[in-house]
Nucleic acid binder design. Structure first.
Lengths: 189, 189
DNA sequence: CGATAAGGTGAATCATGATTCATGATTATA
DNA sequence: TATAATCATGAATCATGATTCACCTTATCG
């Protein structure tokens, strides 16, 4: 998705560095990282931030979107493994674990978004939708092989990702994931 | 728990109004409600806030503590019902639903705490501990009557309360609770 | 190699919000 | 009721952080 037309080489480089720095700092220091800090971390001046992203909200939105991209890719990879013969339920399970860390990060960024204005008004572009679509197919497949409770929906999965304990230690997070997935599995209604 | 000595009547009244206003506003408008707003909602001037709570953090801490008190009370009530003959597993289940809304609120306030400095350094006084102790006894009882997976711990429950989807609609929250509790029940390991 | 438009810089501006403090009420006693 | 503590008030102070803009740099292309 190139801009109007070719972006100058250095500009493209800076844009990437900014996005990365924004992600890192927001994840690590929470919603209130100053734009100045992000600029410093990216090795540019504030003005440059604003050339690429007109407001802080826009920057945060871009970071979120990049997470959705990552998650959607992860989901597609899982789907590919299913196509290659892996049991859908197992693929979903490992996908959940894989996405978890990404989701944890995403939540941190979402918090940033919330602490500003419209939290959900932020893009929610096609990337999220792409991920949701894939997820729906995987869920259907997992139900078909009998590993998932029949009433589980994509929304449930999304809720799962939404409630990932962001600040918990990895071990705690894994335990949480285990409990949650057990609630998802067939056996109960 | 009286202060140094008797608090002037009007002062006590204000103190209560402030705590209530702080709770309401933080829950509704998020971590960044200005002290001015809280003061206005409580019907006092900012200076009065500061007479009762030396910093914003202190105020938020007090609000959190009051939530812990509420939750601990709720847990004790559940324990009483068990003593009165209710099945422990059922009591735990309904307790979870009961605490959920309170926890949702509490999370909002915790977010406020986090957005400032030390999030866990805030009190965590005896009220939290009281609740934890009761919870532990209820869990033991529920395991005894065979309704709970054997490896469930108090920490798991705490994690559950910690991850309540704060901003979700009540129906969504209920669904989430159902899924989670199914993960807690006996049947899986 | 220039010319030039695209890109970068960072001090200055502007807004918001926590916290303080000199001054004016109220409540609780003697 | 008179007086001393206690409280309450809110404008002023101070700090922080987003955003802008007039002025330099440099990539790109003939």
């Amino acid at each position: 998705m190139p801009r109007a037309r070719t972006l100058r080489a250095d500009a493209a480089r800076n844009r990437a560095k900014i996005l990365e720095a924004a992600n890192d700092l927001i994840v690590e220091h929470g919603p209130d990282v100053p734009m100045e800090s992000i600029a410093a971390a990216a090795g540019v001046a504030v003005g440059t931030l604003y050339r690429h992203y007109p407001t802080k909200r826009a920057l945060v939105g871009a970071v979120i979107e990049s997470h959705f991209t990552h998650m959607a890719d992860e989901a597609e990879a899982a789907e590919a493994r299913i196509a290659a013969g892996e049991r859908a339920t197992d693929a979903l399970r490992s996908l959940a674990y894989r996405i978890m860390d990404g989701a944890a990060h995403n939540q941190a960024v979402k918090a940033a978004a919330r602490s500003m204005g419209a939290d959900d008004a932020l893009h929610h572009g096609s990337e999220l939708q792409r991920g949701i679509d894939v997820l729906a197919r995987i869920i259907a497949a997992a139900k078909a092989d009998g590993g998932l409770r029949a009433d589980l929906t994509v929304e449930d999965l999304l809720l799962f990702f939404k409630t990932v304990p962001v600040d918990a230690a990895p071990a705690v997070r894994a335990r949480w994931c285990e409990l949650m997935l057990d609630g998802f599995s067939a056996g109960r209604p």
